[in-house]
Amino acid sequence: MSDLIEVESVSFSYGSRSVLDSVSFRAGEGEFLALLGINGSGKSTLLDIVSGFRRAGTGSVTIEGRSQSEWSRREIAQRVSHLPQAVHADLPFSAEQLVGMGRYPHTDRWFESDEDHKRIRAAMERTSCWAQRRRSFHSLSGGERQRVLLAACIAQDAAALLLDEPSTFLDIEQQLHCFSLLRQEAQEGKLCIAATHDLNLALTYCTRLMVLADGVIAHDMQVTEAHENKEWLGRFSKRLDMGATPAGSPWVWYR
């Protein structure tokens, strides 16, 4: 497994408020990494920095062995796809048009090619939103929108997918479907990093957990190690405890 993304001593502040303080980690192909942490812990900021939307105050980000600053914006987009936490799309684009925007970094054609349309359709079918393709994005429900946005990320066909709370607004069946799909992407060689608050989804589908707290990566472990030391649960609430499902998988519950 080679490192696709390498974050080295990254710090970031909003004015005088420090959010990230010398954060470092490496992640490679085939990993499905859950980025965990309480509200305001810097998960979205870290994803913004890795995707290139924000510039780190200090530190560096390396993508495929080359400094992020040496890649053009478009070259980064060909390698890293980012699903922001909130996309409003107030102007009346259809679901299909929005997913089609995922093909932007790959073509200079005025209109998408048949190959692009095949990929758009495949992505929408994988996220179960092909039936809504002609509907205006802002007429969709929260869950339908989230599936369309996820399809846009998949259609972008990048090696790394950065997803900021991808299961937001999804019903339970769709949450399972979403994380299962991301695990499948990882198994096919992609790197998926998902910021999430759902610890059980992370434990069930991800390969690695990374907990951000007080501006640093407080815990970084493989999911298989999660039950060995429960200290990391205390970062979220003192009422959390961990047991196991009948199948033996780790499971977090409230006391």
């Binding site: 995707s51 290139g52 070259e75 987009a77 796809s81 922001p84 996309v87 409003h88 995922g102 970094p105």
Partner: peptide
Amino acid sequence: QARSWNLLAVGERWAASRGVQ
């Protein structure tokens, strides 16, 4: 730049992560 205006019309972060300066 019509394709880029499409992306910008959705959002700045959206456009940036699809390769727009």
